[in-house]
């Protein structure tokens, strides 16, 4: 519980944070809410020599209407996403999912940008934004680029971000009244999902993504394809794990995970169809 020694610098803007990271290179890590990074450091699984605290960059904490999408600043806390009237109205699935992240303490500290950048397939928001077809805005020394959620997750705790890039904004398409379902299956309320499902469905389209069913969040395209070609929810749900490569851990074998994914996708879609 005692991290290795590290230095600390506080950035007051994205530009400053990026220049600091450039200065310290591989040794440096951004610190946002600290709710993924600090536990790793306490266990000495991460030993960054320099922490660049971006947690107080005020102008990166916002929720705005961007027309077709809702724009959320990367430093926005989970609690603000959960409670935002705008998010509740336009992307209710995301507001709901944010309310299931950890416990109240975690939701007050953790940030949406930190959650996505950490790229943990067991986290709720990567899969949820993936299901919703979100686009992430990354800022680096050479300026901004847009990364589709579907291109962002590269492997276990591995994203498309370069080390000197920072997530600044998350753009989530409005759901335009599409119905949705969110299933988080765990043993204790504050835990990460053993398996989770974020799903939405409109007249002619759907999006289904799985939490903790592989080394990255999984877009269950086979389910959406089946629905599109007229399959029943129950039949489509049978395809839940087609794209997944679930792992074994203390809570679940991969076999059980596959079974859960099918049950939970069915339940989520039943809600999204009701």
């Amino acid at each position: 519980m005692i991290p290795a020694a590290f230095d600390y610098k506080r950035a007051s803007s994205a530009a400053e944070a990026i220049s600091l990271v450039g200065q310290y290179g591989d040794e440096a890590k951004f610190l946002a809410g600290g709710h993924s990074l600090i536990p790793l450091m306490k266990l000495r699984l991460a030993q960054p020599a320099m922490l660049i605290d971006i947690g107080r960059i005020k102008d990166l904490s916002y929720i705005k209407d961007g027309g077709d999408f809702i724009a959320i600043g990367a430093l926005t806390r989970h609690m603000d996403v959960e409670k935002s009237a705008l998010v509740i109205k336009e992307v209710p699935l995301l507001a709901h999912a944010a309310g299931y992240v950890g416990d109240a303490q975690v939701r007050h500290r953790g940030t949406i940008g930190g959650s996505l950048a950490h790229a943990d397939s067991a986290s709720d928001l990567p899969a949820t934004t993936l299901a919703l077809g979100a686009t992430y805005v990354a800022q680096g020394p050479k300026g901004e680029r847009l990364i589709a959620a579907a291109d962002f997750y590269k492997g276990f705790l591995e994203s498309a971000l370069n080390p000197d890039e920072m997530l600044t904004e998350i753009r989530v398409p409005k759901m335009n009244g599409a119905k949705w379902g969110f299933e988080k299956f765990n043993r204790r309320a504050q835990d990460w999902a053993i398996v989770g499902v974020a799903a939405w469905r409109s007249k002619d389209a759907s999006g289904v993504a799985l939490v903790n069913m592989g080394s990255t969040p999984i877009l269950a395209t086979s389910v959406s394809d089946a629905l599109k070609s007229g399959a029943s929810v129950a039949d489509a749900a049978e395809k839940a794990a087609a794209e997944a490569e679930p792992q074994d851990d203390l809570n679940a074998s991969s076999e059980y995970r596959v079974h859960l994914a099918k049950v939970l996708v069915r339940r989520a879609l039943e809600k999204a169809t009701a």
């Binding site: 266990l43 416990d103 043993r187 204790r188 309320a189 504050q190 835990d191 990460w192 203390l250």
Partner: peptide, 15 residues
Amino acid sequence: KTTTLAEYLVPAASD
């Protein structure tokens, strides 16, 4: 294998 409170499941009030 259960050396932290993430793996060793002490239930909380909500559980």
